[in-house]
Nucleic acid binder design. Sequence first.
DNA 1: ACTACATTCAATTTATTGATTGAATGTTTG
DNA 2: CAAACATTCAATCAATAAATTGAATGTAGT
Lengths: 224, 224
Amino acid sequence: MSPASPPSHPQRFIELAEIARTLGHAHRLVLLDHIAQGERAVERLAELSGLSVANASQHLQHLRRAGFVQTRRDGKRVLYRMGAGPIANLLASLRDYAEHQHAEIKEFVADSIHQRERLEGVSIKELLSRMETESVVLLDVRPEEEFVLGHLPGAINIPAEELERRLSELPPNVDIVAYCRGPYCVLSTHAVVALRANGLQARRLSAGFPEWKAEGLRVEITPS
Amino acid sequence: MSPASPPSHPQRFIELAEIARTLGHAHRLVLLDHIAQGERAVERLAELSGLSVANASQHLQHLRRAGFVQTRRDGKRVLYRMGAGPIANLLASLRDYAEHQHAEIKEFVADSIHQRERLEGVSIKELLSRMETESVVLLDVRPEEEFVLGHLPGAINIPAEELERRLSELPPNVDIVAYCRGPYCVLSTHAVVALRANGLQARRLSAGFPEWKAEGLRVEITPS
DNA sequence: ACTACATTCAATTTATTGATTGAATGTTTG
DNA sequence: CAAACATTCAATCAATAAATTGAATGTAGT
Protein backbone atom coordinates (compact mmCIF):
# COMPACT_ATOMS: atom_id res chain seq x y z
CA MET A 1 0.00 0.00 0.00
CA SER A 2 2.76 2.43 -0.65
CA PRO A 3 1.95 4.04 -3.99
CA ALA A 4 -0.96 6.12 -5.02
CA SER A 5 -2.00 8.76 -2.63
CA PRO A 6 -1.47 12.36 -3.68
CA PRO A 7 -3.27 12.28 -7.01
CA SER A 8 -5.47 9.58 -5.53
CA HIS A 9 -6.85 8.35 -8.85
CA PRO A 10 -3.81 7.86 -10.84
CA GLN A 11 -2.89 4.60 -12.44
CA ARG A 12 -6.14 3.68 -14.06
CA PHE A 13 -6.62 7.09 -15.61
CA ILE A 14 -3.06 7.34 -16.73
CA GLU A 15 -3.41 4.15 -18.66
CA LEU A 16 -6.62 5.26 -20.29
CA ALA A 17 -5.06 8.57 -21.17
CA GLU A 18 -2.14 6.86 -22.83
CA ILE A 19 -4.43 4.83 -24.98
CA ALA A 20 -6.47 7.86 -25.93
CA ARG A 21 -3.37 9.88 -26.65
CA THR A 22 -2.15 7.19 -28.99
CA LEU A 23 -5.22 7.82 -31.10
CA GLY A 24 -4.67 11.53 -30.70
CA HIS A 25 -2.64 12.11 -33.79
CA ALA A 26 -3.95 12.19 -37.33
CA HIS A 27 -0.99 10.30 -38.75
CA ARG A 28 -1.56 7.41 -36.45
CA LEU A 29 -5.22 7.26 -37.28
CA VAL A 30 -4.40 7.25 -40.95
CA LEU A 31 -1.88 4.47 -40.47
CA LEU A 32 -4.36 2.48 -38.46
CA ASP A 33 -6.90 2.99 -41.16
CA HIS A 34 -4.61 1.51 -43.76
CA ILE A 35 -3.56 -1.36 -41.56
CA ALA A 36 -7.21 -2.10 -40.94
CA GLN A 37 -7.51 -2.98 -44.58
CA GLY A 38 -4.96 -5.71 -44.40
CA GLU A 39 -1.37 -6.47 -43.50
CA ARG A 40 1.04 -3.90 -44.78
CA ALA A 41 4.78 -3.37 -44.66
CA VAL A 42 6.27 -0.23 -43.19
CA GLU A 43 7.45 1.24 -46.44
CA ARG A 44 4.05 0.79 -48.01
CA LEU A 45 2.32 2.37 -45.06
CA ALA A 46 4.69 5.29 -45.17
CA GLU A 47 3.90 5.75 -48.82
CA LEU A 48 0.16 5.46 -48.34
CA SER A 49 0.21 7.96 -45.53
CA GLY A 50 2.66 10.37 -47.05
CA LEU A 51 5.21 10.01 -44.28
CA SER A 52 8.91 9.35 -44.23
CA VAL A 53 9.73 5.76 -43.45
CA ALA A 54 11.42 6.57 -40.17
CA ASN A 55 8.56 8.73 -39.04
CA ALA A 56 6.01 6.13 -39.98
CA SER A 57 8.03 3.53 -38.13
CA GLN A 58 7.95 5.58 -34.98
CA HIS A 59 4.26 6.17 -35.10
CA LEU A 60 3.73 2.50 -35.77
CA GLN A 61 5.67 1.59 -32.71
CA HIS A 62 3.62 4.00 -30.73
CA LEU A 63 0.54 2.18 -31.95
CA ARG A 64 2.12 -1.11 -31.12
CA ARG A 65 2.90 -0.13 -27.55
CA ALA A 66 -0.76 0.61 -27.06
CA GLY A 67 -1.69 -2.72 -28.58
CA PHE A 68 -3.49 -1.32 -31.59
CA VAL A 69 -1.25 -3.16 -34.00
CA GLN A 70 0.91 -6.26 -34.04
CA THR A 71 3.83 -7.21 -36.23
CA ARG A 72 5.42 -10.18 -37.83
CA ARG A 73 8.49 -10.46 -39.92
CA ASP A 74 8.29 -11.69 -43.47
CA GLY A 75 11.70 -11.82 -45.06
CA LYS A 76 13.25 -8.44 -44.86
CA ARG A 77 10.03 -6.63 -44.30
CA VAL A 78 7.95 -6.27 -41.19
CA LEU A 79 4.24 -6.56 -41.66
CA TYR A 80 1.79 -4.70 -39.47
CA ARG A 81 -1.68 -5.96 -38.78
CA MET A 82 -4.48 -5.01 -36.40
CA GLY A 83 -4.04 -5.89 -32.76
CA ALA A 84 -6.41 -7.84 -30.60
CA GLY A 85 -9.20 -6.51 -28.48
CA PRO A 86 -12.22 -4.37 -29.15
CA ILE A 87 -10.40 -1.87 -31.31
CA ALA A 88 -13.03 -1.62 -33.98
CA ASN A 89 -15.52 -0.78 -31.29
CA LEU A 90 -13.36 1.95 -29.87
CA LEU A 91 -12.76 3.49 -33.26
CA ALA A 92 -16.42 3.25 -34.12
CA SER A 93 -17.35 5.00 -30.89
CA LEU A 94 -14.87 7.71 -31.66
CA ARG A 95 -16.24 8.21 -35.13
CA ASP A 96 -19.75 8.08 -33.86
CA TYR A 97 -19.05 10.71 -31.27
CA ALA A 98 -17.36 12.92 -33.82
CA GLU A 99 -20.31 12.60 -36.10
CA HIS A 100 -22.78 13.65 -33.44
CA GLN A 101 -20.41 16.36 -32.53
CA HIS A 102 -20.15 18.52 -35.56
CA ALA A 103 -23.48 17.40 -36.82
CA GLU A 104 -25.52 20.23 -35.43
CA ILE A 105 -28.23 18.31 -37.22
CA LYS A 106 -28.78 16.40 -34.07
CA GLU A 107 -31.95 14.85 -35.41
CA PHE A 108 -32.96 11.87 -33.42
CA VAL A 109 -29.81 10.95 -31.58
CA ALA A 110 -29.64 9.50 -28.10
CA ASP A 111 -31.82 6.43 -27.57
CA SER A 112 -29.26 3.90 -26.61
CA ILE A 113 -30.82 0.95 -28.36
CA HIS A 114 -31.22 2.70 -31.64
CA GLN A 115 -27.73 3.90 -31.00
CA ARG A 116 -26.31 0.49 -30.56
CA GLU A 117 -27.93 -0.69 -33.71
CA ARG A 118 -26.59 2.24 -35.62
CA LEU A 119 -23.14 1.47 -34.51
CA GLU A 120 -22.66 -2.19 -34.13
CA GLY A 121 -23.45 -3.46 -37.54
CA VAL A 122 -25.25 -6.62 -38.47
CA SER A 123 -23.86 -10.11 -38.27
CA ILE A 124 -23.99 -12.46 -41.21
CA LYS A 125 -26.63 -14.50 -39.44
CA GLU A 126 -28.76 -11.46 -38.81
CA LEU A 127 -28.37 -10.39 -42.40
CA LEU A 128 -29.49 -13.74 -43.73
CA SER A 129 -32.62 -13.76 -41.64
CA ARG A 130 -33.43 -10.21 -42.59
CA MET A 131 -33.01 -10.94 -46.25
CA GLU A 132 -35.68 -13.56 -45.97
CA THR A 133 -38.29 -11.28 -44.49
CA GLU A 134 -37.48 -7.73 -45.52
CA SER A 135 -35.99 -6.08 -48.50
CA VAL A 136 -32.41 -5.17 -47.88
CA VAL A 137 -30.05 -3.46 -50.25
CA LEU A 138 -26.56 -4.85 -50.16
CA LEU A 139 -23.87 -2.33 -50.91
CA ASP A 140 -20.34 -3.39 -51.73
CA VAL A 141 -17.98 -0.46 -51.29
CA ARG A 142 -14.80 -2.19 -52.36
CA PRO A 143 -13.01 -1.18 -55.55
CA GLU A 144 -14.46 -2.61 -58.70
CA GLU A 145 -11.52 -4.97 -59.24
CA GLU A 146 -12.34 -6.78 -56.06
CA PHE A 147 -16.05 -6.70 -56.63
CA VAL A 148 -15.92 -8.47 -59.97
CA LEU A 149 -13.91 -11.32 -58.48
CA GLY A 150 -16.74 -12.13 -56.14
CA HIS A 151 -19.40 -10.46 -54.07
CA LEU A 152 -22.53 -11.20 -52.06
CA PRO A 153 -25.47 -12.23 -54.22
CA GLY A 154 -27.41 -9.25 -55.43
CA ALA A 155 -25.01 -6.69 -54.05
CA ILE A 156 -24.50 -3.47 -55.91
CA ASN A 157 -21.04 -2.01 -56.18
CA ILE A 158 -20.23 1.59 -55.49
CA PRO A 159 -16.57 1.98 -54.53
CA ALA A 160 -16.06 4.13 -51.47
CA GLU A 161 -14.44 6.96 -53.38
CA GLU A 162 -17.37 7.31 -55.72
CA LEU A 163 -20.01 7.03 -53.08
CA GLU A 164 -20.61 10.70 -52.44
CA ARG A 165 -21.40 11.49 -56.04
CA ARG A 166 -23.46 8.39 -56.66
CA LEU A 167 -25.73 8.67 -53.66
CA SER A 168 -28.74 9.08 -55.89
CA GLU A 169 -28.43 5.48 -57.03
CA LEU A 170 -29.48 4.34 -53.59
CA PRO A 171 -33.08 4.08 -52.47
CA PRO A 172 -34.36 5.96 -49.46
CA ASN A 173 -36.40 4.28 -46.74
CA VAL A 174 -34.86 0.91 -47.33
CA ASP A 175 -32.27 -0.70 -45.10
CA ILE A 176 -28.91 -0.57 -46.76
CA VAL A 177 -26.21 -2.88 -45.51
CA ALA A 178 -22.71 -1.90 -46.52
CA TYR A 179 -19.74 -4.23 -46.42
CA CYS A 180 -16.15 -4.38 -47.57
CA ARG A 181 -13.18 -6.53 -46.68
CA GLY A 182 -13.73 -7.56 -43.14
CA PRO A 183 -14.39 -6.49 -39.60
CA TYR A 184 -11.52 -4.06 -39.53
CA CYS A 185 -12.05 -2.61 -42.95
CA VAL A 186 -13.34 0.88 -42.45
CA LEU A 187 -14.53 1.57 -45.94
CA SER A 188 -17.97 0.44 -44.97
CA THR A 189 -17.90 2.38 -41.72
CA HIS A 190 -17.17 5.52 -43.65
CA ALA A 191 -19.85 4.64 -46.11
CA VAL A 192 -22.44 4.22 -43.41
CA VAL A 193 -21.59 7.57 -41.94
CA ALA A 194 -21.86 9.21 -45.35
CA LEU A 195 -25.13 7.54 -46.18
CA ARG A 196 -26.72 8.47 -42.89
CA ALA A 197 -25.55 12.02 -43.26
CA ASN A 198 -27.65 12.03 -46.39
CA GLY A 199 -30.73 10.68 -44.77
CA LEU A 200 -30.44 7.08 -45.86
CA GLN A 201 -30.89 4.09 -43.59
CA ALA A 202 -27.58 2.35 -43.52
CA ARG A 203 -25.87 -0.18 -41.36
CA ARG A 204 -22.65 -2.00 -41.62
CA LEU A 205 -22.01 -5.68 -42.00
CA SER A 206 -19.66 -6.62 -39.17
CA ALA A 207 -17.95 -9.17 -41.32
CA GLY A 208 -16.72 -8.68 -44.86
CA PHE A 209 -16.63 -10.55 -48.10
CA PRO A 210 -13.85 -12.95 -47.07
CA GLU A 211 -15.81 -14.06 -43.99
CA TRP A 212 -18.92 -14.57 -46.06
CA LYS A 213 -17.06 -16.76 -48.47
CA ALA A 214 -15.36 -18.62 -45.64
CA GLU A 215 -18.77 -19.56 -44.28
CA GLY A 216 -19.43 -21.36 -47.52
CA LEU A 217 -22.24 -19.01 -48.48
CA ARG A 218 -23.13 -18.33 -52.08
CA VAL A 219 -20.92 -15.92 -53.94
CA GLU A 220 -21.74 -14.10 -57.13
CA ILE A 221 -19.15 -13.40 -59.77
CA THR A 222 -19.45 -10.78 -62.44
CA PRO A 223 -19.12 -12.50 -65.80
CA SER A 224 -16.37 -10.96 -67.89
CA MET B 1 -13.17 19.93 -55.51
CA SER B 2 -10.45 22.22 -54.37
CA PRO B 3 -9.46 21.05 -50.91
CA ALA B 4 -7.83 17.89 -49.78
CA SER B 5 -4.98 16.76 -51.86
CA PRO B 6 -1.49 16.79 -50.37
CA PRO B 7 -2.11 14.85 -47.16
CA SER B 8 -5.10 13.41 -48.97
CA HIS B 9 -6.86 12.22 -45.81
CA PRO B 10 -6.80 15.20 -43.63
CA GLN B 11 -9.81 16.86 -42.16
CA ARG B 12 -11.74 13.89 -40.91
CA PHE B 13 -8.75 12.35 -39.19
CA ILE B 14 -7.63 15.61 -37.71
CA GLU B 15 -10.98 16.03 -36.05
CA LEU B 16 -10.96 12.53 -34.68
CA ALA B 17 -7.44 13.02 -33.40
CA GLU B 18 -8.44 16.17 -31.59
CA ILE B 19 -11.22 14.40 -29.83
CA ALA B 20 -8.97 11.52 -28.87
CA ARG B 21 -6.25 13.84 -27.69
CA THR B 22 -8.72 15.61 -25.45
CA LEU B 23 -9.17 12.34 -23.62
CA GLY B 24 -5.44 11.84 -23.69
CA HIS B 25 -4.63 13.39 -20.36
CA ALA B 26 -5.28 11.86 -16.98
CA HIS B 27 -6.40 15.13 -15.41
CA ARG B 28 -9.09 15.57 -17.98
CA LEU B 29 -10.33 12.04 -17.53
CA VAL B 30 -10.49 12.59 -13.80
CA LEU B 31 -12.38 15.81 -14.25
CA LEU B 32 -14.78 14.16 -16.62
CA ASP B 33 -15.28 11.40 -14.17
CA HIS B 34 -16.32 13.82 -11.48
CA ILE B 35 -18.54 15.79 -13.77
CA ALA B 36 -20.20 12.56 -14.79
CA GLN B 37 -21.50 12.26 -11.28
CA GLY B 38 -23.39 15.49 -11.41
CA GLU B 39 -23.01 19.19 -12.04
CA ARG B 40 -20.00 20.68 -10.34
CA ALA B 41 -18.44 24.12 -10.04
CA VAL B 42 -14.89 24.75 -11.12
CA GLU B 43 -13.49 25.23 -7.67
CA ARG B 44 -15.02 22.00 -6.48
CA LEU B 45 -13.68 20.10 -9.46
CA ALA B 46 -10.25 21.52 -8.89
CA GLU B 47 -10.39 20.38 -5.30
CA LEU B 48 -11.68 16.93 -6.16
CA SER B 49 -8.97 16.46 -8.75
CA GLY B 50 -6.15 18.02 -6.82
CA LEU B 51 -5.52 20.74 -9.36
CA SER B 52 -5.11 24.47 -9.11
CA VAL B 53 -8.23 26.34 -10.09
CA ALA B 54 -6.65 27.94 -13.11
CA ASN B 55 -5.27 24.68 -14.33
CA ALA B 56 -8.56 22.92 -13.86
CA SER B 57 -10.30 25.72 -15.71
CA GLN B 58 -8.04 25.27 -18.68
CA HIS B 59 -8.53 21.57 -18.86
CA LEU B 60 -12.25 22.06 -18.53
CA GLN B 61 -12.26 24.39 -21.46
CA HIS B 62 -10.34 21.87 -23.43
CA LEU B 63 -13.06 19.38 -22.65
CA ARG B 64 -15.68 21.88 -23.58
CA ARG B 65 -14.16 22.60 -26.96
CA ALA B 66 -14.44 18.93 -27.74
CA GLY B 67 -18.03 18.88 -26.57
CA PHE B 68 -17.49 16.55 -23.66
CA VAL B 69 -18.87 19.03 -21.18
CA GLN B 70 -21.21 21.99 -21.18
CA THR B 71 -21.53 24.88 -18.82
CA ARG B 72 -24.11 27.14 -17.32
CA ARG B 73 -23.73 29.99 -14.96
CA ASP B 74 -25.32 29.88 -11.54
CA GLY B 75 -24.67 33.05 -9.64
CA LYS B 76 -21.00 33.65 -9.44
CA ARG B 77 -20.07 30.10 -10.16
CA VAL B 78 -19.99 28.22 -13.42
CA LEU B 79 -21.34 24.70 -13.32
CA TYR B 80 -20.03 22.00 -15.60
CA ARG B 81 -22.13 19.09 -16.71
CA MET B 82 -21.76 16.33 -19.27
CA GLY B 83 -22.12 17.23 -22.90
CA ALA B 84 -24.43 15.68 -25.42
CA GLY B 85 -23.72 12.79 -27.68
CA PRO B 86 -22.58 9.24 -27.15
CA ILE B 87 -19.91 10.11 -24.64
CA ALA B 88 -20.66 7.32 -22.25
CA ASN B 89 -20.26 4.92 -25.10
CA LEU B 90 -16.91 6.30 -26.08
CA LEU B 91 -15.60 6.18 -22.55
CA ALA B 92 -16.93 2.69 -22.07
CA SER B 93 -15.19 1.55 -25.24
CA LEU B 94 -11.99 3.10 -24.03
CA ARG B 95 -12.24 1.39 -20.68
CA ASP B 96 -13.20 -1.83 -22.29
CA TYR B 97 -10.22 -1.73 -24.59
CA ALA B 98 -7.90 -0.91 -21.73
CA GLU B 99 -9.24 -3.80 -19.77
CA HIS B 100 -8.66 -6.27 -22.57
CA GLN B 101 -5.32 -4.72 -23.06
CA HIS B 102 -3.48 -5.27 -19.85
CA ALA B 103 -5.62 -8.23 -19.01
CA GLU B 104 -3.23 -10.82 -20.30
CA ILE B 105 -5.92 -13.05 -18.88
CA LYS B 106 -7.55 -12.91 -22.21
CA GLU B 107 -9.92 -15.66 -21.31
CA PHE B 108 -12.84 -15.68 -23.61
CA VAL B 109 -12.68 -12.28 -25.18
CA ALA B 110 -13.60 -11.50 -28.76
CA ASP B 111 -17.06 -12.72 -29.73
CA SER B 112 -18.72 -9.52 -30.68
CA ILE B 113 -22.14 -10.34 -29.34
CA HIS B 114 -20.92 -11.35 -25.96
CA GLN B 115 -18.79 -8.27 -26.20
CA ARG B 116 -21.65 -5.98 -26.83
CA GLU B 117 -23.54 -7.36 -23.93
CA ARG B 118 -20.59 -6.96 -21.66
CA LEU B 119 -20.32 -3.35 -22.57
CA GLU B 120 -23.64 -1.87 -23.27
CA GLY B 121 -25.41 -2.44 -20.07
CA VAL B 122 -28.99 -3.42 -19.62
CA SER B 123 -31.97 -1.18 -20.04
CA ILE B 124 -34.61 -0.92 -17.36
CA LYS B 125 -37.00 -2.83 -19.58
CA GLU B 126 -34.52 -5.61 -20.10
CA LEU B 127 -33.83 -5.75 -16.41
CA LEU B 128 -37.48 -6.10 -15.54
CA SER B 129 -38.02 -8.97 -17.93
CA ARG B 130 -34.90 -10.70 -16.69
CA MET B 131 -35.94 -10.37 -13.11
CA GLU B 132 -39.07 -12.29 -13.93
CA THR B 133 -37.35 -15.26 -15.43
CA GLU B 134 -33.85 -15.44 -13.97
CA SER B 135 -32.27 -14.62 -10.71
CA VAL B 136 -30.43 -11.34 -10.87
CA VAL B 137 -28.49 -9.67 -8.12
CA LEU B 138 -28.99 -5.94 -8.01
CA LEU B 139 -26.00 -4.04 -6.75
CA ASP B 140 -26.27 -0.41 -5.70
CA VAL B 141 -22.83 1.16 -5.59
CA ARG B 142 -23.83 4.59 -4.40
CA PRO B 143 -22.81 5.84 -0.98
CA GLU B 144 -24.93 4.56 1.85
CA GLU B 145 -26.56 7.96 2.46
CA GLU B 146 -28.11 7.85 -0.96
CA PHE B 147 -29.01 4.21 -0.75
CA VAL B 148 -31.09 4.54 2.39
CA LEU B 149 -33.15 7.31 0.84
CA GLY B 150 -34.35 4.94 -1.82
CA HIS B 151 -33.13 2.10 -3.99
CA LEU B 152 -34.36 -0.59 -6.34
CA PRO B 153 -36.32 -3.32 -4.63
CA GLY B 154 -34.05 -6.04 -3.29
CA ALA B 155 -30.85 -4.25 -4.19
CA ILE B 156 -27.85 -4.71 -1.96
CA ASN B 157 -25.62 -1.75 -1.21
CA ILE B 158 -21.88 -1.83 -1.47
CA PRO B 159 -20.50 1.66 -2.02
CA ALA B 160 -17.94 1.85 -4.79
CA GLU B 161 -15.06 2.55 -2.44
CA GLU B 162 -15.71 -0.54 -0.40
CA LEU B 163 -16.30 -2.82 -3.30
CA GLU B 164 -12.85 -4.29 -3.63
CA ARG B 165 -12.70 -5.50 -0.08
CA ARG B 166 -16.26 -6.76 0.04
CA LEU B 167 -16.19 -8.80 -3.12
CA SER B 168 -16.79 -11.95 -1.16
CA GLU B 169 -20.31 -10.83 -0.37
CA LEU B 170 -21.26 -11.32 -3.98
CA PRO B 171 -22.25 -14.66 -5.46
CA PRO B 172 -20.37 -16.15 -8.40
CA ASN B 173 -22.16 -17.53 -11.44
CA VAL B 174 -25.10 -15.22 -11.05
CA ASP B 175 -25.76 -12.18 -13.17
CA ILE B 176 -25.03 -9.07 -11.18
CA VAL B 177 -26.46 -5.78 -12.39
CA ALA B 178 -24.78 -2.72 -10.95
CA TYR B 179 -26.29 0.74 -10.98
CA CYS B 180 -25.70 4.16 -9.52
CA ARG B 181 -26.94 7.63 -10.31
CA GLY B 182 -27.61 7.62 -13.97
CA PRO B 183 -26.31 6.97 -17.43
CA TYR B 184 -23.25 9.12 -16.95
CA CYS B 185 -22.42 7.98 -13.49
CA VAL B 186 -19.32 5.88 -13.78
CA LEU B 187 -19.36 4.32 -10.36
CA SER B 188 -21.19 1.36 -11.78
CA THR B 189 -18.92 1.16 -14.80
CA HIS B 190 -15.95 0.91 -12.51
CA ALA B 191 -17.75 -1.62 -10.40
CA VAL B 192 -18.46 -3.81 -13.39
CA VAL B 193 -14.85 -3.75 -14.43
CA ALA B 194 -13.74 -4.65 -10.94
CA LEU B 195 -16.24 -7.44 -10.58
CA ARG B 196 -15.35 -8.97 -13.89
CA ALA B 197 -11.69 -8.79 -13.08
CA ASN B 198 -12.56 -11.02 -10.17
CA GLY B 199 -14.40 -13.54 -12.22
CA LEU B 200 -17.93 -12.41 -11.47
CA GLN B 201 -20.64 -11.93 -14.06
CA ALA B 202 -21.50 -8.30 -13.97
CA ARG B 203 -23.28 -5.85 -16.18
CA ARG B 204 -24.27 -2.31 -15.81
CA LEU B 205 -27.71 -0.78 -15.73
CA SER B 206 -27.70 1.93 -18.40
CA ALA B 207 -30.00 4.07 -16.33
CA GLY B 208 -29.65 4.88 -12.67
CA PHE B 209 -31.82 5.20 -9.64
CA PRO B 210 -33.32 8.57 -10.64
CA GLU B 211 -34.47 7.18 -13.97
CA TRP B 212 -35.98 4.16 -12.29
CA LYS B 213 -37.92 6.34 -9.94
CA ALA B 214 -38.96 8.64 -12.76
CA GLU B 215 -40.54 5.67 -14.53
CA GLY B 216 -42.80 5.27 -11.56
CA LEU B 217 -41.36 1.90 -10.64
CA ARG B 218 -41.38 0.63 -7.10
CA VAL B 219 -38.72 2.01 -4.79
CA GLU B 220 -37.58 0.54 -1.53
CA ILE B 221 -36.58 2.69 1.40
CA THR B 222 -34.47 1.53 4.28
CA PRO B 223 -36.44 2.06 7.48
CA SER B 224 -34.54 4.20 9.93
C1' DA C 1 31.36 -13.21 -46.38
C1' DC C 2 29.85 -9.20 -48.87
C1' DT C 3 26.19 -6.25 -50.66
C1' DA C 4 21.60 -4.55 -50.89
C1' DC C 5 17.64 -3.61 -48.59
C1' DA C 6 13.86 -2.89 -44.92
C1' DT C 7 13.29 -1.47 -40.53
C1' DT C 8 14.54 0.32 -36.14
C1' DC C 9 17.29 2.98 -32.98
C1' DA C 10 19.53 7.13 -31.10
C1' DA C 11 20.42 11.79 -31.14
C1' DT C 12 19.09 16.34 -32.31
C1' DT C 13 16.07 20.09 -33.51
C1' DT C 14 11.54 21.96 -33.69
C1' DA C 15 6.77 22.34 -32.44
C1' DT C 16 3.01 21.50 -29.10
C1' DT C 17 1.24 21.10 -24.84
C1' DG C 18 0.93 21.69 -19.79
C1' DA C 19 1.59 24.48 -15.44
C1' DT C 20 1.96 28.71 -13.10
C1' DT C 21 1.39 33.37 -12.20
C1' DG C 22 -1.02 37.70 -12.11
C1' DA C 23 -4.41 40.53 -14.31
C1' DA C 24 -9.19 40.90 -16.38
C1' DT C 25 -14.15 39.76 -16.55
C1' DG C 26 -18.50 39.26 -14.73
C1' DT C 27 -21.58 38.42 -10.58
C1' DT C 28 -23.47 38.88 -6.13
C1' DT C 29 -23.87 41.41 -1.79
C1' DG C 30 -23.97 45.38 1.17
C1' DC D 1 -21.17 51.53 -6.93
C1' DA D 2 -17.64 49.36 -4.19
C1' DA D 3 -15.91 45.05 -2.28
C1' DA D 4 -15.58 40.14 -2.41
C1' DC D 5 -15.58 36.26 -5.04
C1' DA D 6 -15.51 32.63 -8.97
C1' DT D 7 -13.87 32.00 -13.22
C1' DT D 8 -11.32 32.96 -17.30
C1' DC D 9 -7.72 35.10 -19.98
C1' DA D 10 -2.90 36.16 -21.28
C1' DA D 11 1.78 35.66 -20.79
C1' DT D 12 5.62 33.02 -19.41
C1' DC D 13 8.29 29.00 -18.44
C1' DA D 14 8.82 23.96 -18.23
C1' DA D 15 7.91 19.53 -20.08
C1' DT D 16 6.62 16.40 -23.85
C1' DA D 17 5.95 14.99 -28.25
C1' DA D 18 6.95 15.11 -33.33
C1' DA D 19 10.12 15.26 -37.32
C1' DT D 20 14.56 14.69 -39.20
C1' DT D 21 18.97 12.82 -39.80
C1' DG D 22 22.41 9.31 -39.84
C1' DA D 23 23.94 5.06 -37.86
C1' DA D 24 22.79 0.19 -36.30
C1' DT D 25 20.35 -4.20 -36.79
C1' DG D 26 18.76 -8.01 -39.17
C1' DT D 27 17.54 -10.66 -43.45
C1' DA D 28 18.19 -12.21 -48.46
C1' DG D 29 20.66 -12.98 -52.33
C1' DT D 30 25.04 -13.68 -54.75
